[in-house]
């Protein structure tokens, strides 16, 4: 479910690309410092976007130069950590841990072994993150329980299922102090969450159908046969376009800051590209190739 929210790199300015990488490194350092070296494996693009969005109030971005295990000799430019910037690391640990738990439900014993191991290793970091993130974990657990119930009942509403997931992301805006900004952020995050859930469901639809697993889109449109028909894709495109319209119209109300350019790139161009790739199948193909390449390398 992770990795859909990313910038379109070819459209980024050189400065913005450096900033994006610095935010990525910043989140990684926050993870390492706050939750131990293993928690660094929870790092992903979606949470990097969240960390950037939560930094959107910064008028000028602050950076520092740091070494890390990946770059031990040359210091890298890292977005400053500490204070509010660290909260995103806690969210990251919680979301990835819950995602691991989620994947245990669907898989058999042997296939789930790696996830079980990873979960056991992350347990300590998770407990720490729960304590540091206010009521985010409680909200996320509640929403996920609701989602499981809906999935168990094979709900045919994509809005209802996506809503549970979207609310989790929207909860991340709660730490913002300015009420208007909080409303804007929570609107952006709600629709980003909704978009991610639906795009992910579309990406897995064919495989879920073949495996007989629950998929909200398959239930919604009552499709079978392993392929998503063109008619359904048209409806999905409309619903996704409207979610993107909502997040973009909210984004335009965000006060201008050091990170505005990147956020705009992700919302306008990055998500557009990923949507196209998911519908054309290119996204899935790429993920698969990456996975098989890993196996060959091993």
């Amino acid at each position: 479910m992770f990795g859909y929210v990313r910038p379109l790199k070819s459209e980024l300015k050189v400065r913005e690309l450096a900033q994006f990488e610095a935010a990525y490194c910043g989140l990684c350092h926050s993870l390492g410092k706050g939750f131990g070296p293993l928690s660094r494996f929870t790092l992903n693009y979606d949470l990097t976007f969240l960390s950037i969005l939560l930094r959107s109030g910064e008028k000028t971005a602050r950076f520092e130069r740091r070494r890390c295990a990946v770059s031990p000799f040359r210091k890298k430019c890292v977005a400053c950590t500490g204070g509010d910037a660290d909260i995103c690391a806690a969210y990251s640990v919680i979301l990835v841990y819950l995602k691991l738990e989620d994947s245990l439900i669907d898989e058999g014993f042997f296939r789930s072994l790696p996830a079980r191991l990873m979960r056991a290793l992350l347990r300590g970091a998770y407990d720490k993150a729960v304590k540091r993130s206010g009521n985010f974990a409680a909200l996320a657990l509640d929403a996920l329980r609701e989602l499981h119930e809906l999935e168990a009942a094979r709900s045919s509403s994509i809005d209802r299922t996506a809503d549970s997931f979207a609310r989790i992301l929207a909860a991340a805006a709660e730490t913002e102090k300015d009420e208007n900004v909080r409303r804007v952020l929570s609107q952006i995050l709600y629709h980003v969450g909704r978009w991610v859930y639906i795009v992910d469901a579309r990406c897995d639809a064919a495989e879920d159908m073949r495996a007989g697993r629950y998929n909200p889109l398959v239930s919604r449109f009552g499709i079978s046969g392993g392929e998503v028909p063109e008619v359904c894709d048209r409806e999905l495109r409309i619903t996704l376009a409207n979610s993107r319209a909502m997040m973009i119209s909210a984004f335009e109300l965000l006060p201008e800051g050091a990170w505005t350019g990147i956020i705009g790139n992700i919302l306008y161009a990055g998500m557009e590209q990923v949507t196209e790739d998911v519908f054309s199948g290119a996204y899935r193909h790429r993920q698969k190739r990456k996975r098989t390449k890993w196996r060959v390398d091993e």
Partner: peptide, 12 residues
């Protein structure tokens, strides 16, 4: 039409 008209302009 995909929601707000402004949104549908091409990026950049």
């Amino acid at each position: 039409s995909g929601g707000a008209p402004y949104v549908n302009r091409s990026y950049g």
